[in-house]
Design a protein around this nucleic acid. Structure first.
Lengths: 319, 319
DNA sequence: TATAGTCATAGATGATTATCTATGGTGTAA
DNA sequence: TTACACCATAGATAATCATCTATGACTATA
């Protein structure tokens, strides 16, 4: 058999001829003329190298080889069809894979979006990458993920970003800290405190540094710790104060409490970030849609909802 | 996905590209130029309606959809390949089906050929049709079977026949018949005996009638019985004499014995009969080959072997 | 024996395909 | 930076394909 010349069209036509037992009938059903179908059969026979049908009592019946070919046709066509359905489902975003890169702090909130999404879309496979701002920027530069969450989107023309959730940075101290009840607490008062800081690459550190700089404060004593969780524990055990995303604290506030420092919480927002030129996997698009539908009620972030809606629209227009 | 435009060739090329991870490499392996392969990929992408590969670190890697398409390709191609192997096996005659029409008497011998053949070719499915000469002629006229066994082939230009086995007709009487020991027994002496005859459509009857006519004998008393077996039993129980194929008697000679009538046994031969225009199924061809290889030793019929060999040659030439 | 239905074949034509050569872009390695 | 390897695109061409209309052969039925 000359496999390379075999076409699915031929198999379709052939299968229909076997089913109807009539060349003319198939021609009508497929909106072709009778000679066309005759010729298709002829060509298929040549490809197979063997007679596949014969005339019998005004019906066209498959030969023994034709029988086998019919089964093959059914089989192949249905497999192709399954694939086609898969494609549709993939394009609808209900199936497939995407990867999302999260800046460290975001890992405290994103699960609340990803969890329900996965539940609703079990066929979608999500890879979550986590790192500090700098690491995520590297991944971003290398196009390693489909979607990112930054609090400060990289400044790149090729970037589209939607601020979707507020990320207030607060100062925390140990439970029962003497500062907790101070009125009009200022940085000046905390000058002598040791501050436990995230590493320089992190967004939290960056934001805090910027605030310190703009308010002309210089810290006396600092210590660098690379993990939000470690910082929270260190604060709880009295090693010092820290600036953390409120989400970090809200998640499991044991042993620490927010301090009412003036000017705090520092406002910042998480952004969904995608590259303009990258074709977003339909599943990622579906995730964004899902998030958009959730933000207003579940997170009380109507602005975020609008921003995501705009991003979705922009992505649609890109295509 | 535009299934109708899908070609196995495209899948072959695509699968190879995925395997090698290189368009150029595939081009070389398939004896094509690089642009050709590039274009095939492009066309396949258009058929699928979705990017299927992307460049990555000087390698061509499939996208998520491409992965699924690759699996599909493998699947479809291997199925087509299995069919192709089936075709080969079919053409070799080691697989498939044929039907053979036997004249009644032949059913006593053919199993000795069909049995070993089936054993050696378990994938071949044989349909055996049995009837008297007239019934077989009807089937023959209607092209109902692939192969026939007649003692007297139909006289038809479109027929090819090979006498392959002698079929001696003998006169039988009951065991201990008084005629058994008579020397120079002639028909004249048996004039008064009742003869149990096969029905007119049968070959045995036909041959016997012809002999009677040519030797000018007329039987006094006859009875017609449509089955060899029934006749044998009737003879055994003393109802009369009969003319039967020696094979019928040889098979289970209980209660009957051959009588030494002059001029007997009447010589006749079984013929394999095929229609010239009918394409013989490879399995039937293989059966004839098998028979040809068996006749000389197992049946001591060297002439039959030659005749079948000639038939096979003629069939080969027909194609 | 006409008639209608079913196929096969021939001949024509526009569209598509397979394939090539030539060329240009891009990224990697010397 | 140059050279090389790899891929994409453009343009050309011959082959093949998908289709059609017209027509002829065969067969069953009125």
């Amino acid at each position: 058999m000359k496999v390379r010349q075999l076409t699915f069209r031929l198999l379709q036509v052939y299968a229909d001829v076997v089913r109807t037992g009539s060349i003319t009938a198939t021609a009508n059903r497929l909106h072709l003329t009778q000679p066309t179908v005759s010729q298709q059969l002829k060509r298929l026979r040549e490809i197979v190298g063997e007679p596949i049908v014969r005339q019998e009592d005004s019906r066209v019946v498959p030969t023994e080889v034709g029988q086998a070919l019919y089964q093959l046709s059914q089989d192949l066509l249905s497999r192709a069809d399954v694939f086609s359905q898969y494609l549709d489902e993939y394009n609808r975003g209900g199936r497939g894979h995407f990867s999302i890169g999260l800046v460290n702090t975001a890992q405290y909130v994103l699960p609340r979006l990803l969890g329900p999404f996965s539940q609703a879309n079990p066929q979608v496979d999500v890879t979550v990458e986590i790192g500090n701002r700098q690491q995520m920027l590297n991944r971003f530069e290398r196009h390693e993920d489909d979607l990112y969450v930054f609090s400060h989107p990289p400044s790149d023309d090729a970037v589209m970003a939607a601020p979707f959730l507020s990320n207030p940075l607060v100062v925390v101290g140990p439970e029962n800290s003497r500062w907790a009840s101070v009125k009009d607490l200022t940085m000046e008062a905390l000058k002598e405190e040791r501050f436990l800081l995230r590493e320089p690459g992190s967004a939290t550190r960056h934001t805090f540094d910027a605030w310190l700089y703009s308010s002309g404060v210089e810290l006396r004593s600092t210590q660098q710790i690379a993990s939000n969780e470690a910082i929270r524990l260190a604060v709880a055990s009295g090693m010092g104060l820290a600036v953390l995303s409120r989400h970090v604290v809200a998640d499991s506030p044991k042993g620490v409490q927010e301090l009412p420092l003036q000017g705090f919480p520092l406002k910042s927002r998480w952004h969904f970030v995608v590259r303009r030129e990258r074709r977003l996997p339909p599943a990622a698009y579906r995730f964004l849609s899902f998030v958009q539908g959730t933000l207003a009620q579940a997170f009380d972030e109507p602005e975020g909802e609008v921003a995501v809606a705009e991003l979705l629209q922009a992505l649609k227009d890109e295509r």
